[in-house]
């Protein structure tokens, strides 16, 4: 039984990772170690970076993400609730919000630097720009998707506007807001890398850019793997939150 599970579940994972690493190492030794850094080079790069300020670089990037994402989410949820609740607000703001969503946040970098200087504020602004429209639209959709019968039931028992809002609409909209935040977090990661590569002075994106100009492909590989791991970790946090507070959306992947 355990053996069957091993063959079925774990073996393919191990097999594919081994094949991938093997091919990579083969490419590194046969083609060009500059094109495909050898695994031992990557390992050494990791330790030399880790003994330096790698931890601080990661923290700076995460702090920027958290600031921009946090501020934007705090603004987006009330706006989304208002747009979902009052049709007039939806008709006034729905069009612009829908349009701004299609502007790649990194395209704002020149404006952001002109407005805030090449500083943390500019990068935080770009993260906020990546977040705010996605979370607003999802929160609004949450309000509009509340099951009508729940509202009717509450109204029938005498609930007024605020009671319906707090007890029925808000709890049903929160899972949608969380789903939006999960999507926005992916966008924020993409933005922070580009923003720090183009205008950063510190952080993971800057580390990649620095490794690029000095052609240290081992360092680039370390940066890429770290980004993947951080991305997965933050995604799992939101998955947990959706499972915990997501109501009928729990368990969705």
């Amino acid at each position: 039984m355990i053996r069957a599970r091993f063959v079925e579940m774990v073996l393919p994972y191990l097999l594919s990772v081994a094949i991938m690493l093997g091919l990579w190492q083969l490419a590194a030794t046969q083609v060009n170690p500059l094109f495909f850094p050898r695994l031992e080079t990557v390992w050494r790069s990791f330790w030399s970076l880790a003994s330096g300020d790698l931890g601080a670089q990661i923290l700076v990037s995460l702090a920027r993400i958290l600031a921009g994402f946090g501020i934007a989410s705090l603004a987006a949820v009330p706006i989304g609730l208002l747009m979902g609740t009052v049709p007039a607000v939806h008709r006034l703001l729905g069009g612009p919000v829908d349009f701004f969503r299609f502007i790649p946040p990194i395209a704002m970098i020149v404006l952001a630097v002109a407005w805030f200087g090449a500083s943390d504020v500019a990068i935080v602004f770009l993260i906020g720009f990546s977040t705010i429209f996605i979370v607003t639209i999802n929160t609004e959709a949450g309000v509009l998707h509340v099951v009508r019968n729940r509202i009717r039931a509450a109204q029938m028992m005498g609930a007024g506007f605020w009671q319906v809002f707090w007890l029925v609409v808000l709890p049903s909209a929160i899972p949608h807001a969380l789903i939006g935040m999960r999507i926005a977090m992916g966008a924020a990661f993409s933005t922070i890398v580009s923003a720090e590569m183009i205008a950063g002075d510190y952080g993971l994106g800057y580390l990649l850019q620095e490794a690029r100009t000095t052609l240290r492909t081992g360092n680039i590989f370390v940066g890429i793997v770290l980004l993947g791991m951080l991305g997965i970790m933050t995604d799992r946090v939101f998955r947990f939150l959706i499972d915990r507070f997501g109501g009928e959306h729990a368990g969705s992947r």
Binding site: V17, M20, G186, V193, S194, G228
Partner: peptide, 18 residues
């Protein structure tokens, strides 16, 4: 899955150097 689940979290622009 080990690759799709890992690489999809890596922003494409991080691959620009490679």
């Amino acid at each position: 899955e080990p690759f799709t689940e890992f690489f999809r979290f890596i922003p494409a622009i991080a691959m620009v150097v490679f």
